[in-house]
Nucleic acid binder design. Structure first.
Lengths: 303, 303
DNA sequence: TCCGGCCATACCTGGCAGGTATCGGCAGCG
DNA sequence: CGCTGCCGATACCTGCCAGGTATGGCCGGA
């Protein structure tokens, strides 16, 4: 049985007349007769009663037609769904991101994306760069936004695009001696208890800090690893020490904290958007397009 | 797009390999490639990614396949439903019947029918012979069981089959003088207030009673028309007079009534099953078959 | 009884589904 | 770094069947 048979049967039921139904589907009457007969043979039941007053579906025909309508509707929907999916207008996007991406990048990107692609089911979860990279490789995420390209086994199957760059700033509680200062020097920071991203979860950021401060130096007065920028700011507000994080923290500065530059300037690892290389999903492409559109800093992969 | 394309796409998704998928659907590999390419062109989207490790559906392909599965399932169900409907195993049977049919005929027929054809939605309603005939002609019923063939305009489009025959019996309240008698004569009945089927709703029955008693005689002492046999028995139990009805009333005799034969015997119009002549529904045919099977009195139409 | 409408049948044809042969690309391997 | 084997795409052919035209058969109305 082919879709053709369903279309013909529906046309016949609608027009109750072989000649007109045939014209409606664009064929001559005899082929229609033959196709209907063939369909009836295949189904094993007479589907239409040919009477002098017209052609009418039998009970079996009514049962058949009801299903046939649904089958054809599904076929049309299949084509439509596939086309929309190909244009990235439907589907699912699972996004993992580090907390600092919520400060400047993601608000505009996600707003715009969900406006332009309302049929895409967007699942976004905050997570560290390391965990995001693992989730991406495990197929648990479609896109992940982190600090620095994800490392680890199979990292070459990940495509990364730089989407933002931040200088390092220091954040302290309102009562801290640095509060009110425009800048602190790296030398001063060596004397402080520092609050930074954790070495395991944010390896690129931590490595950059070690490099900036001289190997190991940033930790000799004590060191606290934090899960994300909000935790860094919160612990700094508690007076626990000096927090180190991206300049985009200024966008979410708490009133009970003070943020100052670090001299000489330290550039943090780029904020990077990562995809699986073997996943050319149109939804993902659409997401990247929106990101490129909104973010002038988007550049080539860092490797 | 044809059903063939859906089957091929599903096979390809299952085997992730053009050659094996082609073998699975019984064709060679090149035609499968061509058909898939044609499908992708028609849908306007690439549905499969051909990689070195195998063939995998794209996001658009996944969307398409989900619908395709449902479409094919609907097509199979269409054929199955139609075949079962043709065998009378599914569909709907709207049945109208006179109350007396519930005494002997319908209990066995409906039990057997609903057991043998569990997929048929059975809608049964008690109604007079006249109303059942009208409802049948109006297309509100598929089958009706009444006393005598339905009359009226267009009655020739109705096919009738006799399914039962009853003698006339008299029913009286326990306190009535006839209680305990084996029989009453037609002559005795002439002196009684009678409770019978109404002239408008049961024309055949009423005409037979008039014929048996002599024109008009049965009504000269007063007469009550009743909607059905249970009403006749109920009114008789109230001592309102002598009820006249089919012998099958004995099957549902109330303890507060007495039933006696009428002499000389009067044969009531046959219990008749009626169908629309232009409705050759298999459900209806199955219903008639069950009736014939269970009821030895089934005979030809009475006209 | 003739006529007109309608569906079925008979027969033909062209397009396309599906066949075989072969190419091109890629991955693994010596 | 070429060789080889595998796989999908392409090229080309063929046979079948969908669909065409012509016509027959049946039925209902005039």
């Amino acid at each position: 049985m082919e879709a053709r048979h369903l279309r013909y049967a529906l046309a016949l039921a609608e027009h109750q007349h072989f000649g007109r139904a045939a014209k409606a589907v664009g064929i001559a009457q005899p082929p229609l007769s033959k196709q209907i007969a063939q369909l009836e043979g295949e189904v094993g039941a007479r589907l239409f009663d040919r009477t002098a007053r017209g052609v009418f579906p039998t009970a079996a025909g009514e049962a058949f037609l009801a299903r046939a309508r649904r089958a054809l509707a599904e076929m049309e929907a299949a084509a439509g769904d596939a086309e929309r999916a190909a244009r990235g207008e439907t589907g699912r996007l699972r996004l993992g991101f580090v907390g600092s991406a919520l400060l400047e990048l993601l608000p505009s990107v996600l707003n715009r994306f969900s406006r332009d692609h309302p049929h895409v089911r967007l699942q976004a979860a905050e997570m560290s760069t390391a965990r995001g990279g693992r989730a991406l490789l495990d197929g648990e995420l479609d896109v992940c936004v982190g600090r620095g390209a994800p490392r680890g086994p199979g990292a070459r199957e990940i495509v990364t695009v730089a989407v933002g760059r931040d200088r390092l700033v220091a954040v302290v509680g309102a009562a801290h001696p640095y509060a009110g200062q425009a800048a602190v020097s790296v030398g001063q920071l060596r004397e402080q208890h520092l609050i930074t991203a954790s070495a395991e979860e944010e390896p690129a950021t931590f490595a950059r800090l070690r490099q900036a401060g001289g190997d190991g130096v940033f930790t000799h007065r004590g060191w606290t690893g934090a899960r994300d920028v909000h935790t860094i700011m919160g612990l700094a507000a508690c007076g626990l020490g000096v927090g180190l994080g991206p300049a985009s923290m200024r966008a979410a500065r708490r009133p009970d904290t003070w943020i100052c530059d670090v001299t000489p300037g330290v550039v943090l690892p780029d904020l990077v958007m990562s995809f699986r290389a073997d996943d050319a999903s149109p939804v993902q492409a659409a997401f990247l397009a929106v990101t490129r559109d909104l973010c002038p800093h988007v550049g080539a992969a860092l490797g």
